[in-house]
């Protein structure tokens, strides 16, 4: 594995957070009481001829977003502009995959607010796939959930242990 994190998705493929995206998110780890929650959207590829999905980059807090120790509000406008730009640049191959945010806990769990927000995203957002992915970056672990647009079921994904030294 390259330095990224892999999870098993429900389609029998992998959901991989690439090295670059991971570095972008880890820059906001809440490992200090002074650090506020951060978040953004996941951008990446539905790998051709496979069930694999790779997160290549993420958006980071932008003007209009609101951040506090335990809350993050993501204003759609600027993040949408980034989605559109990458989608166009990549000739529609770099796509919106879901969202991410940080938690000031080692092994992140989804809060009620998180689950409600994800279900809302599955209902209200427009996207060309069956699933959305939600990532929470804790102070030690990174966890991921998959949401189904039809059933709106959210389930946590199992991570694949990194086999490199």
């Amino acid at each position: 594995m390259s330095s990224g994190i892999c999870f098993c998705n429900s389609q029998g493929g992998l959901f991989k957070i690439g090295e670059n995206a991971l570095l972008q998110m880890r820059a906001y780890v809440q490992d200090d009481p002074g650090k506020a929650e951060a978040g953004g959207v996941l951008l990446g590829r539905f790998i051709v001829d496979s069930a694999d999905i790779v997160v290549d980059q993420v958006t980071i807090p932008m003007p209009g977003d609101k951040r506090s120790r335990h809350r993050f509000f993501r204003e759609a406008k600027n993040h949408q502009a980034m989605i559109d730009r990458r989608w166009n640049q990549s000739k529609h191959r770099c796509n919106y995959l879901g969202g991410w945010h940080t938690h000031p806990e080692p092994n992140p769990t989804a809060s009620k607010t998180d689950i409600r927000d994800w279900k809302r995203a599955l209902r209200q957002n427009q996207f060309d796939s069956e699933t959305l992915y939600f990532v929470i970056v804790g102070t030690q672990e990174v966890s991921a959930w998959e949401g189904n647009r039809h059933t709106r079921l959210i389930k946590e994904l199992m991570s694949i242990p990194d086999q490199e030294n």
């Binding site: 929650e37 978040g39 759609a76 796509n95 927000d117 995203a121 957002n125 060309d128």
Partner: peptide, 11 residues
Amino acid sequence: RGPAIITSSHS
């Protein structure tokens, strides 16, 4: 894939 339109979000 087709275009995506997102809404604002709370976490």
